[in-house]
């Protein structure tokens, strides 16, 4: 696919979509409502179609989560549908993350010998391949090997085979391989030839940082050997290689935190770092995610006719759906309002 892409159209459209997302001010009120009230509320906004389809079978949080999932897939395909040319190429490259996620789900399911229906329930067809494709893969294979063979022809077959040959058929290795392949492909295949591609790569590099930080936090917290950690870090982010390795090579979580505190690499997480020991990683990860989203927002203002407004919308939409799910699930499982407020990502 060639062509510059319909930036004016797509950007105006995503901006209008962005303006129709649930505003920040509505969240305190949503937190005060009950689950069925939230269902009604979202039924009066962008979720009306799904709510009306599933509303008659309403049984509570599950129904809402179904509504949210459907809406997300619809929103993503909608965006892909009106993007053209180079823009579409970039956006679809980004959305292939959902394919990665789905491959991971299928592999895990097969490893666990889960029944196909259960695996399919966990699939979110928001990437390039649709529900039918995944059903075919899930039903048509019984082992991990089968799945890999069935994925022949997709972008990820090569990476999976390479992982198998080099490191053996270990699930976690496959998963790491897939994630790294996703970012590698984006950085390799998209050359910063045009302004749009440059801004896109900039965005992706920021996201790679986010993923790397998450990996660092989790592995350091669990005391994984530095050598192993380094193998899991995705190259190409904005953080320098030396800095990353230095963080990975620290001795234990305490030292890691110490270094992090001193280097001020990420001022956004300063406050949260102090609470990690007591409150878990949620706060830090949230802060990182917020910083990432804020960066996209800022960048999309600087480049109003680029791929960034589209990325920004996708990020925001995903965040909104996550927020709604947190509120609904949290309420259904009896978390108190204050906890829920801490969990959601309101910008």
């Amino acid at each position: 696919m060639t062509g510059r892409g319909n930036y004016a159209y797509a950007c105006a459209r995503v901006k209008a979509k962005r303006a129709m997302l649930i505003p920040k001010e509505a969240y305190p009120r949503l937190l005060a409502m009950d689950v069925s009230g939230i269902m009604r509320f979202i039924g009066e906004s962008q979720y009306s179609q799904e709510t009306q389809e599933l509303g008659i079978k309403y049984t509570g949080a599950e129904t809402i989560e179904l509504v949210l999932g459907k809406n997300l897939a619809k929103a993503h395909h909608g965006v892909l549908g009106f993007c053209k040319g180079e823009l579409k190429e970039l956006v679809s490259a980004y959305m292939r993350w959902w394919d990665v996620r789905n491959i991971k789900t299928v592999l895990r399911g097969k490893r666990y010998n889960a029944i196909p229906e259960d695996i399919l329930k966990a699939i979110v067809p928001a990437g390039e391949y649709d529900e039918k494709y995944w059903a075919g893969i899930v039903r048509g294979s019984s082992t991990i090997e089968d799945v890999i063979e069935n994925l022949k022809g997709t972008e990820y077959y090569g990476a999976l085979v390479k992982t198998r040959e080099k490191l053996g058929g270990d699930l976690s290795r496959y998963e790491n391989g897939l994630e790294m392949e996703y970012y590698r492909r984006i950085l390799d295949s998209i050359k910063p030839a045009t302004n749009a591609k440059r801004t896109f790569i900039d965005f992706m590099r920021d996201e790679i940082d986010l993923v790397n930080f998450r990996t660092l936090f989790m592995t350091k917290f669990d005391g994984v050997e530095p050598k192993k950690i380094i193998g899991m870090l995705i190259p190409g982010g904005k953080m320098g290689k030396e800095d990353l390795h230095a963080l990975a090579n620290t001795d234990g979580f305490g030292q890691f935190m110490e270094l992090l505190r001193n280097t001020a690499a990420y001022p956004a997480i300063k406050d949260e770092i102090s609470q990690v020991e007591s409150a878990g990683l949620n706060g830090v990860i949230r802060a990182l995610e917020k910083a990432h989203a804020a960066a996209v927002e800022r960048m999309s203002r600087l480049h109003p006719l680029s791929v960034l407004p589209v990325m920004n919308y996708i990020t925001r939409k995903e965040a909104e759906i996550e927020n709604l799910r947190i509120i609904v699930r949290g309420k259904a499982s009896g978390l108190d309002t204050e906890r829920i407020r801490e969990l959601i990502m309101v910008m």
């Binding site: 319909n6 105006a12 209008a16 129709m20």
Partner: peptide
């Protein structure tokens, strides 16, 4: 350009 942008925005929200 303006027209295509306007078409995009109106497709989402007629009020604008």
């Amino acid at each position: 350009e303006i027209g295509s942008a306007a078409a995009g925005a109106v497709a989402e929200n007629e009020k604008v």
